[in-house]
Every structure is written in structure tokens, then in C-alpha cells.
């Protein structure tokens, strides 16, 4: 399709970018198998033997608790976002009412709002609600900031569903709740996938709310755990590399399994915004 350059220059460019994008990962993974001594003598060479000691250390230090926390927060938030964003989009896309447009715009504006503008009030609010330093304290803000993009995606998708589908159901006296759950929601599968993928990746890697709203290490999510680990073990660089490798693994694994789905989901999600 694109033939501006070809042959050797093309390969040089492609491999150059491959090195720049891939080398940090390669080095990180290789270093994670080294001992501290070996790292000090030759930091970036290929390890002489592949020792799993650093990974055993991580298991001992209950590194997997961070995974569990991140998974819990991400799954619960994404699940709730899907339900309430789809519900909110139903009247916005399918029913005519005066405030429809203003409400939609109000939600949409959320996409440009810097999280930092809400940080102090959310910090104070979370303290007042008594859920500071708890995973539940994170779910609220995660949902709130995932809503704008999700509502935009769902609304656009729902507008394209033919009206005739629900006309007959309406004549039968079907309630809106049943109409939504039995007829509209099952048709949303592609949009649900986009919303789920897009938000899961962002929430899984989210940093600032987790930094401000949690404090103890048993409530730390993965990004916070990684940073904590880095602070405590700054001398043990291979150990840190093992933590980084392990921490990056879940998303990369999912990506390698369902590459096309992830990429199209992310692209669709971002472009709609």
C-alpha cells in the first residue's frame, strides 16, 4: 500500500523503531534474571544464567496482593461504568426531551477536565465518607472519570440502532426498563467491548488517585506497589526489574492473546472522544 521507501532503507527504519520500542522491554526482562553481583560487574549484558531468585523474592513479599487490588478495583469500576453509562445513554440517544443535549454536553466536557482540578475536594470528600485508604474510595472517582467517554461511545452506538425495533415493543406496553434490558442492551456488545477495554487499561494503570486516596501498602494498587518497591529496594536493581516485568505482564499477556480486539477497542474508544 505504501511504497515511498522500499528495500534496505525500509528495513533499517522498521528495525530502528523496533529497537527503540522493544529494547527497554528486553533489557528489563533480561536484567530481572540476574543476581545483584552480576549486575554490578556488567549491568546490561545478557545474563549468564536465568535465575528466578528475584521473582521468588517478589512472591515472598506478597507482590501479588497489588495485582489482586488492581484487579478488584478495575473489574468493579468497569462493570459499574458499563451498566450506568449504558443506562444514561439510553434516554440521551433514544428519547426526545428538552435537556437531552445540555446533559450530553455536560458529560462530554468531562473529557477535558484535568483530574488534578478535582483532587483536593475528592480527597476531602473521601476522608469525610470514611473510605480514605480503602479500595472502595478509588472506585467512585474511577467511575466518574470513565463516564464521559463511555457515555459518548454508547450514545453514538445507540443512535444507530433502528427505531422500529422498539416501536413494536412500545405498542405492546413494554416498560422502558424491559425495553432497555431485553432489546437494546443485548445489541450493545461491540460498544460494551470498546468501553470495557478502553477503561480497563486506563484504570489498571491509574496512578494519581491511587497515590492520593490510599496510604497503606495493603491497599496499594499495582502502580503504587511498583513505586513503593522501587523506593525500598533501590539498590537491588535486578529485583526492581523483576517487579517491573511482572507488573507489566498481565496487560501484555492479554494483549498478545487478543491483539486485534485490544487495538481496535482502544482506537475506537479514543476517536469517539
Amino acid at each position: 500500500m505504501i511504497k515511498v521507501i522500499k528495500g534496505i532503507p525500509l528495513y533499517l527504519l522498521a528495525i530502528g523503531i523496533l529497537v527503540v520500542t522493544g529494547l527497554p522491554f528486553l533489557i528489563m526482562t533480561l536484567t530481572s534474571f540476574k543476581g545483584q553481583m552480576e549486575f554490578m560487574t556488567s549491568p546490561w549484558s545478557i545474563p549468564k544464567s536465568f535465575s528466578l531468585d528475584n521473582y521468588m523474592l517478589l512472591v515472598e513479599l506478597e507482590f501479588f496482593g497489588y495485582f489482586a487490588n488492581s484487579l478488584f478495583v478495575s473489574v468493579v469500576s468497569v462493570f459499574i461504568v458499563i451498566i450506568i453509562a449504558a443506562m444514561a445513554s439510553y434516554p440521551l440517544a433514544r428519547l426526545k426531551f428538552r435537556l437531552s443535549r445540555p446533559i450530553f454536553i455536560l458529560f462530554m466536557v468531562g473529557m477535558m477536565i484535568p483530574i488534578h482540578t478535582t483532587l483536593v475536594p475528592i480527597f476531602i470528600l473521601t476522608n469525610k465518607m470514611g473510605i480514605y485508604d480503602s479500595l472502595f474510595g478509588l472506585i467512585g472517582p474511577y467511575i466518574a472519570f470513565a463516564l464521559p467517554i463511555s457515555i459518548v461511545i454508547f450514545t453514538q452506538f445507540m443512535r444507530d440502532i433502528p427505531k422500529e425495533l422498539e416501536e413494536s415493543a412500545k405498542i405492546d406496553g413494554c416498560s422502558h426498563l424491559r425495553l432497555f434490558w431485553n432489546i437494546i442492551f443485548p445489541l450493545l456488545t461491540p460498544a460494551v467491548a470498546t468501553v470495557a477495554i478502553y477503561n480497563f487499561i486506563h484504570i489498571w494503570n491509574e496512578f494519581i488517585f491511587a497515590l492520593v486516596l490510599t496510604n497503606s501498602s495493603q491497599n496499594a494498587t499495582l502502580p503504587i506497589g511498583l513505586r513503593e518497591f522501587y523506593g525500598e529496594f533501590s539498590v537491588n536493581i535486578p529485583g526492581i526489574m523483576a517487579a517491573l516485568t511482572l507488573g507489566s505482564l498481565p496487560l501484555l499477556l492479554v494483549y498478545f492473546i487478543a491483539q486485534e480486539k485490544i487495538v481496535t477497542g482502544l482506537a475506537a474508544g479514543s476517536v469517539k472522544g
Binding site: L18, T21, N205, S248, L251, F256, Q259, V263
Partner: peptide, 13 residues
Amino acid sequence: SVYFMPFLMSTVA
């Protein structure tokens, strides 16, 4: 596959 990997890595990592 490799080109896209940086975006999936957590920013902290």
C-alpha cells in the same frame, strides 16, 4: 506487536 507495547506498560513502570 512490539511497536504497540510501550503504550500498555504502566506509566509508573
